[in-house]
Write a protein that binds this DNA or RNA. Structure first.
Length: 300
DNA sequence: AACAGGTACAACCGCGAGAGG
DNA sequence: TCCTCTCGCGGTTGTACCTGT
């Protein structure tokens, strides 16, 4: 007997989500937290399948998501990471905590693939890529490295930190509710959202870890120490001390820290490469073209 | 103004992995 | 060890919007 289809039941609604549905979903998650998606449609009365609820939350409603145009910096990172990891969008997204894997995937398919095709035809990108051995050898010839990097990506603090992500989420929800209130009036006020003092246009990164966030590579932040300084400052320190100092790990517990201590080098090869001169050079070039909006005020 | 083609992105589908019984 | 359930991921589709003719 095969697996029963998830969403082919009678009465399961498909298609775009309405603001009302969003409100219901957000309210429920605000109260119960994300997870246990099976129970979400049951408890909320939403005529959606659990998968649809999860997708809506993770790709649209989840707090800390940055919407709008990708910066040149983000583009560069996606291109780098895609070259290394292939179409492992979730792994790539873990390095861009403000972007969803769906966003990155869409952006890759609609923009970057085309751009790269054009660039490759003029050899402009390929020459840059070939500066680095990883590009020169091709991802398929570095399977162990890729595997390691994928594992690292999964272990990254951004990979899965529901608690911290959820805890900082209310700006998105506030946005949603705000937008909803603007477009539907009069209507009963939504449940009060607490713990959110962030303005509508002031989306904070879901995770504030300066090393793991490539946003810091922009170097345009107003901090006392730019990201490369941070990197150089910490690259010889054990991962644990760095993570402890900068409050990494998101929702990871002590056990995870220990795991990191045992399994992860202070700086993985992918991270080294991404901070490497070639990448830095390329990204720095892109930085010059950036509008600066990718620079996120960091905690240092 | 109307239409066609292109683009962007939200959402869906199917599969695999992992957890738990 | 096997089976079922649940979740997450990557590929794909549908559709609203944009742009050019």
């Amino acid at each position: 007997m095969g697996r029963p289809p998830c969403c082919d039941k009678e009465g399961i609604k498909k298609g775009p989500w309405t603001p009302e549905e969003d409100i219901i979903l957000v309210s429920y998650i605000q109260e119960h937290g994300p997870g246990n998606w099976r129970s979400v449609p049951i408890n909320t009365g939403l005529m959606r399948c659990s998968k649809s609820c999860r997708l809506r939350w993770t790709n649209y409603l989840r707090p800390g998501i940055k919407r709008g145009n990708f910066t040149a910096h983000e583009e560069g990172m996606i291109v780098h990471l895609q070259s290394l990891l292939g179409n492992r969008w979730a792994a790539i997204a873990s390095y861009l905590p403000q972007r969803t894997d769906n966003d990155i995937k869409n952006y890759w398919n609609t923009h970057l693939k085309k751009k790269l095709a054009v660039a490759n035809s003029t050899n402009s990108i390929s020459s840059a890529n070939n500066r680095h051995p990883i590009f020169a050898t091709g991802s398929s010839n570095n399977q162990p490295e890729i595997t390691q990097m994928a594992a690292i990506a999964r272990r990254s603090p951004f990979a899965d930190c529901p608690s911290s992500s959820y805890a900082s989420s209310m700006d998105n929800i506030s946005k949603l509710l705000d937008g909803f209130m603007k477009t539907t009036s009069p209507s009963p006020p939504p449940p009060p959202l607490q713990h959110y003092d962030v303005g509508y246009d002031d989306v904070k990164p879901a995770v504030e870890n300066p090393l793991m966030s490539f946003d810091c590579m922009s170097g345009t932040g107003g901090g006392e120490m730019d990201c490369f300084d941070v990197y150089h400052h910490h690259q010889h320190q054990p991962a644990s001390s760095f993570m402890d100092q900068y409050g990494g790990y998101g929702g990871y517990g002590e056990e995870s820290k220990q795991m990191m201590n045992h399994q992860a080098p202070p700086l993985s090869s992918i991270e080294k490469w991404l901070f490497d001169e070639a990448a830095a050079e390329q990204v720095a070039d892109l930085m010059d073209l950036s509008d600066g909006c990718c620079s996120v005020p960091m905690m240092f």
